[in-house]
């Protein structure tokens, strides 16, 4: 096999993910690196369903279902209990964008600020998909959802969750997507290695029904999100050391990403809005590039050691 992805599976088939579900694949690939001494905490999200209806379930690790807004703190409680029992089990909070960006943000911020020894993974499909595609604060500017119809598409840019997490100065935060499995695997391993504090992974996860596209375009869509710099792959250590982990070969226009998905129809129909988005993407990318370079300079300067 060309890939460094482990062959061992920790997710049984028979999951209830839709055809081409990026969230399901995200879980499958992340689990391969997590191994079997791990516990997953699932707040309300697609995965509450995907794991299967009682009395069956798919994952080969324990899964604790919890309320929508509590993933980070229930994971904290579990970790505390495991620690007091002398166990080093990895505890992962696995939340959708709603359970991360919106309703889950308070508990997430609390856990991040306290630097809890957990891994928080957001699989972000950029809307409330489980309830039928309603907008969230992760929904990008100009997007159609059932609560931001074509006549009034999403009026605000996507919330900068990575910026928020970086501002908490947690040891490790990274973006990733299953379209780049080796990058994803490495980041999961890095997150595991950074144990002792809060780790955050932001995984862009395609939702074919919610993104209005064919199931077999799921990987291509996530790949284009990266290639167009709409979703750059990078990591942030201690909230300040930025590193871009994948440099797109050439600047690909954002429309290449948007045109694959029906949800961006309002955006593609509005040149001014599209230009605004294009500029936002560019600006964000250059911000990251600058931070990346700044981190390199600091690392190579004599004072670099003080960064930590």
């Amino acid at each position: 096999m060309r890939w460094a992805v482990p062959e061992a599976e920790f997710m049984d088939p028979g999951t209830l993910g839709c055809q081409g579900c990026g969230g399901t694949l995200s879980m499958r690939l992340v689990l391969k690196e997590l191994g079997d001494d791990a516990i997953a905490v699932l707040p309300a999200c697609c995965w509450s369903i995907i794991d299967g209806p009682w009395p069956v379930h798919a994952l080969n690790i324990p899964v604790f279902h919890t309320a929508f807004e509590t993933a980070a703190v229930v994971a904290t409680g579990i970790k505390a209990a495991k620690q007091i029992k002398g166990k080093d089990t990895t505890v992962v909070a696995w939340a959708g964008d709603g359970g991360t960006f919106d309703i889950g943000l308070q508990a997430l911020s609390g856990a991040a600020e306290r630097n809890e020894d957990i891994v928080f993974i957001c699989y972000d499909n950029e809307a409330y998909m489980n309830t039928g595609i309603q907008r969230s604060s992760a929904t990008p500017l100009g997007t159609w959802t059932t609560t931001t119809p074509d006549e009034r598409p999403e009026p605000r840019p996507k919330k900068d969750i990575m910026g928020i997490m970086a501002a908490h100065r947690i040891p490790y935060a990274a973006t990733a997507t299953v379209a780049y499995p080796d990058d994803l695997s490495r980041k999961v391993r890095t997150a595991l290695a950074a144990k002792g504090g809060m780790r955050f992974l932001h995984l862009l996860s395609a939702c074919p029904p919610g993104w209005k596209m064919a199931a077999d375009d799921a990987i291509e869509a996530m790949r284009r999100a990266v290639q167009t710099n709409v979703f750059p792959l990078y990591e942030v250590r201690d909230g300040r050391e930025y590193k871009i982990t994948h440099w797109p070969e050439a600047e690909v226009d954002v429309a290449d990403y948007f045109s694959l998905q029906g949800r961006f129809a309002p955006l593609l129909a509005d040149d001014a809005l599209l230009n605004l988005v294009r500029n936002n993407v560019r600006e964000r990318w250059w911000f990251l590039v600058e931070r990346h370079q700044q981190s390199l300079r600091k690392a190579s300067s004599p004072d670099g050691a003080h960064l930590h």
Binding site: M1, R2, W3, E7, P13, T24, L25, R28
Partner: peptide, 23 residues
Amino acid sequence: ACGTCFVFCPDGVITWEDGPVID
């Protein structure tokens, strides 16, 4: 046997026996 299908199967229905076997 590059493994790309195995890696990207969202549902983990491809097992690997020197090559892909679809369930």
